[in-house]
Design a binder for these strands. Structure first.
Lengths: 229, 229
DNA sequence: TTCTTGACGGTACTCAGTACCATTCCCGTG
DNA sequence: CACGGGAATGGTACTGAGTACCGTCAAGAA
């Protein structure tokens, strides 16, 4: 019964001590001692003192990679949304632990930086996936992929932080809505709310350009596909 | 002549040694020794071993803060563009130094993380400024500010990295163009290229909603102001 | 000259992280 | 039961970053 503990006891001891004395004021020896194990054992379970706070970013990264990999060109955006939801759900499952971590990262600069570095890895994953999805290897597409990935991650973090602060009763719904907003942003100017919900589409002309030149744009507008209309 | 050196000599020695042996293989003692100063002096000039690579992020942050502060509600977006250009120019002025740093951060995870943490501070600055500019304290506006700040920073980084890799002959023009793209994204669906350059405005109707209900949206569309049209 | 101030160098310490070795415990095999 | 091997553990010793403290020296002001 006291066997499966080891790793768990270390994490518990760490969080408790960080709460009591603060992060910098707690040494690895302190943690090991309270957990009733040797110092060596600590480093066998966690690569560093910071690691005890962020256990399984690597595993989560793999999950995201897998989710993105199992998607076709048509379902790419759905896969992105799914992947984001996956990350959020991971935090939600942690429950109070995630909130304790949030309190720590809010106070301790070193931990905040570490968290940010992790987020950057997610962003990189999304950026590569989106760029690949766009196919188009022009500089403009590359920038667009970068912006989109940044927005996707920002949207997730926004909702996550709201939940961590206790400001969001239904974060899953919120993140879905936020993702819709992000995807709408990048669908291009030609896809508008009225177009989507079947309410109304408005088109006004102001002369000054050859009408023929406008036809392709008009077509894209009506069909709601990407491109500058 | 050998007096103003101290701090400079340390930086030179550090970069040289990092190039020769790599970052981890270089100790602070090594750097101090090559610079011909004591170890204590190193830490008097730089807070940490990493710091010698990133000298003046703090100063740059202040510059950004100042530039943003000197703007009215109307010139807010121009201030953001200016601030971004300011950061880029800072790197351009560093010239080869910036490229050497880039090579280092590409190889050494600790340095990359550190750089990313710095970037996050810029992003935070922009987010707060944009949120404040929007006024509107709704959750939707808050998300929008977050997305916009993330995109602004991503656009800058995208251009900067291109220049660092030697892929951009005119990064200033590129960053201006990228910022135009970002701002166009967030101007909302109702402001379209044709509206701006006076070429053509297109409005199409599909029935299914009371026409009166559409009038406010139409008005906003024509006037090119934010809001869901 | 004398006093003060600031930059510097040296020593000693704490603590994170690594390497290595010895011990113990568990478990299957003879 | 005895034996052997592997896995988890604990201890010791080391490197290196970062901090604290103190003494020295040089330049300038009184």
């Amino acid at each position: 019964m006291s066997k499966p503990a080891a790793r768990t006891r270390l994490a518990d001891a760490a969080f408790a001590l960080f709460d009591e004395r603060g992060y910098e004021q707690t040494t690895v020896d302190d943690i090991a001692e309270r957990a009733g194990v040797g110092r060596t054992t600590f480093f066998r379970h966690y690569r560093s003192k910071e690691d005890v706070i962020f256990p399984d970013h690597d595993r989560l990264l793999e999950q995201i990679k897998d989710r993105l990999a199992t998607s076709s060109h048509e379902t790419a955006l759905a896969a992105v949304s799914d992947a984001v939801r996956l990350v959020l759900l991971h935090y939600l499952e942690e429950g109070d632990l995630a909130r304790r971590r949030y309190r720590l990262t809010s106070k301790v600069a070193a931990l905040r930086d570490r968290e940010i570095a992790s987020v950057a890895r997610y962003q990189r994953l999304f950026r590569e996936f989106i760029a690949n999805w766009m196919g188009d290897s022009t500089e403009s597409a590359s920038l667009r992929a970068e912006l989109m990935a940044a927005s996707v991650v920002a949207a997730h973090n926004h909702v996550l932080r709201r939940w961590l602060r206790g400001e969001s009763p239904d974060p899953v719904a919120e993140v879905d809505e936020a993702m819709r907003e992000v995807l709408a942003l990048f669908r291009g100017p030609q896809s508008r709310p009225e177009t989507r919900d079947g309410g109304t589409t408005v088109v006004a002309f102001r002369t000054g350009q050859d009408l023929d030149a406008l036809l392709p744009a008009l077509r894209r507008l009506v069909e709601g596909e990407p491109g500058d209309a």
